[in-house]
Design a protein around this nucleic acid. Structure first.
Lengths: 203, 203
DNA sequence: GGAAAGTCTGAATGATGGTTCACTTCTTTC
DNA sequence: GAAAGAAGTGAACCATCATTCAGACTTTCC
């Protein structure tokens, strides 16, 4: 044996992989999936196109990793708010607001995650993550029903509706942002989300 | 001059174009946009690939026409229900139901129109049609507010939420239909839609 | 230092699929 | 029926990328 990966070398490779994913995410956020060619991504990461294949078996695998990391962060944040302290209705409102605010603060990425045309592998991943959003919302809705704060309803359907509603409401603002209207938009959106779940109007 | 298009010839050409669009729509409904290659579509229409270009300058133009026709029908039907007779809340419920029912009856096409990955030109068209759905819903919501049947709210936001909610709720059933659960699904969906707009729960 | 085992490079390769075009077939008009 | 003008054909063309690979360069370890 004349070569074994030293710890330093291993972490160097991991860092390189990481850097590639980070830069690829930036490229996707800027130009969308369709324009994020292997060459463009490799250039952004400062490596040759062929080197991408040292870290990922295919472009699709890299794209999936980019999606998973970015979407995973959002699921995590949303989950923390929805499972956090407070009454279910308040958490639902806060979760909606936090989700929307984060999307508006990182529009390119949010659009890529939510709506931008993507290759099939990413599309499948998107479906999976939407299911996770739904599961998070459904849990809170069920809590709300159990606590008597929300009327009886099919929590799964409501959760799907919330996911779709929030996404659709954000599409236009993500494309053509109006900084001044952000707070009003968030207020209207959370209000609509609460109505959607059947929360009684705020006094 | 030795040749001028006779009326019969003109209508034959129009019919051929029409036939191409119809068959292309079927192909898209069956296999999705990505798999609907020019060759596949031409084969389905019984013509050569090159002949497609007698009717459309590009594949994208054909795809847009397919989308417009199919989506246009849905907008028309929805518009008739939403602008039809009855109180605004009832029309909203009925519109939601009709839209969902039609989608479930023609799942492949509905999926292609609502969610399936598509080339940019079709994506742009999709955004446009979503805007039309929103406008239709927004008008009814405004009517409901004016009539005192719905609470004050930003009708545009609610309309976007309705569009997104209905679409998202349908995605799973479109992919994995459960014939037995259709009526329950429709009831839950219309219920959620009404809550979304703030209609008081049915007694 | 040097051999072994990697890593990195970037031009060549290959697959895909839209588009073109020389040619054939059909319609019109006289 | 024959010339002129279209429409229809489908194999060839071409552009676009993802992917590969032979060679250059690095790191490890004796």
């Amino acid at each position: 044996m004349a070569y074994r990966k030293t710890p330093a070398e291993i972490s160097r490779l991991e860092a390189a992989r990481d850097h590639l994913v980070v830069r690829a995410t930036e490229v996707v956020a800027e130009v969308g999936w369709a324009q994020a060619s292997v060459t463009a991504v490799a250039d952004a990461a400062g490596i040759a196109a062929g080197s991408v294949y040292q870290h990922f078996p295919s472009k699709a695998a890299l794209a999936v990793e980019v999606f998973r990391r970015a979407a995973g962060r959002e699921v995590e944040v949303l989950g923390e708010v929805l499972h956090g302290p407070g009454d279910p209705v308040g958490r639902l409102a806060r979760g909606t607001e936090v989700f929307a605010r984060r999307a508006l603060e990182n529009r390119g990425l949010a659009y890529a995650l939510l709506a931008a045309p993507a290759e099939p592998a990413v599309g499948a991943e998107r479906l999976d993550f939407r299911r996770r959003y739904r599961a998070l919302f459904a849990a809170v809705v069920r809590e709300g029903i159990a606590a008597g704060a929300l009327p009886p309803q099919n929590a799964e359907i409501t959760a799907a509706a919330l996911t779709g509603a929030i996404g659709e409401v954000l599409v236009d603002p993500l494309a053509a942002p109006d900084e001044n209207a952000t707070e009003a938009l968030l207020a209207d959106l959370t209000g609509t989300a609460l109505r959607c779940a059947g929360a009684p109007p705020a006094t």
